[in-house]
Simulated scan of single mutants.
Amino acid sequence: MTGTSPRQGRVCFTSQVRADRLNDYRAAHAAVWPEMLEALRDTGWRDYHLYLRGDGLLVGILETDDYDAAQAGMAATEVNARWQAAMSGFFADEGNPDEGFVILDEVFFLEGQLEAAGLPTRR
């Protein structure tokens, strides 16, 4: 997200899933509730991906115009309260899982540096 606030554009975060719940966590995300998918879309979450490492490290990447507003929008939905309650047993930290995300700073973006160097981004 070079040149922008870490709260807009591309956002990357980490969290920690309990190692003994990885299969259940994967299963829950293989069929996310349609109303949850709609709420994410409608509150500004785009191109949202979750990656899970074997020790439970969870990495999320999304695009949004305003991460704080997207988070607040989700917090105001009834479906998010139900989803967070259902997901709470999967995470190492107590509380709503979506409130414990650790936002990472972007330190390299290939296309941005190619563009800044006057190089084509695709061959």
Rank of each mutant, 00 (worst) to 15 (best):
A76S: 15
M36C: 09
D24P: 01
G73Q: 12
V59C: 05
A72M: 08
F101R: 14
W33G: 03
P6G: 10
G73P: 05
Q71Y: 13
R21F: 00
D68S: 11
E99V: 05
A30G: 11
L62E: 14
L22N: 01
P120E: 01
G9R: 05
A69F: 07
G89A: 04
V107Y: 10
D68V: 10
W33L: 14
D66Y: 06
N23A: 15
G44P: 07
T64Y: 05
D93P: 02
Q16L: 09
D98E: 12
R123G: 08
L110G: 10
V17F: 02
N80D: 13
Y25T: 00
D24E: 13
L104K: 11
F101T: 06
V107M: 12
E35M: 14
T64R: 03
Y25M: 00
A85L: 11
F109A: 15
H29E: 00
R41H: 09
T43M: 09
S15R: 13
T14M: 10
L57D: 09
A70E: 04
M87D: 08
G100V: 08
V59Y: 06
L50C: 04
M74Q: 14
D42Q: 15
V102Q: 12
E99K: 10
T121H: 02
F91I: 02
E94C: 07
R41P: 03
I61C: 08
L57W: 02
M36F: 13
R21W: 01
S15T: 10
F109V: 06
A39G: 05
T121M: 09
R122Q: 15
L52S: 04
Q71I: 07
L22R: 03
W45G: 04
L62I: 05
D42A: 09
R122L: 12
S15Q: 11
E106D: 10
F109R: 14
R123L: 08
L57E: 15
C12H: 11
A70F: 05
E38I: 04
Y67T: 03
T2H: 11
L22C: 01
R10N: 12
D65H: 12
A19R: 11
C12V: 15
Y48K: 10
G112M: 04
T64S: 14
V11F: 05
F91W: 13
P6K: 14
L114H: 04
F13E: 13
P34K: 08
M36T: 10
Q84D: 15
R18C: 01
N96R: 09
E38T: 09
L114A: 11
V79C: 13
N23M: 10
N23T: 10
A81M: 08
G118F: 01
N80R: 15
A28I: 00
G54Y: 02
R10C: 08
P6W: 04
V32M: 00
V32P: 00
A85Q: 14
P34N: 09
L58T: 01
R53T: 02
L58Y: 01
G73F: 09
F90R: 00
E35V: 07
L50D: 08
A76R: 14
A116K: 13
L58A: 00
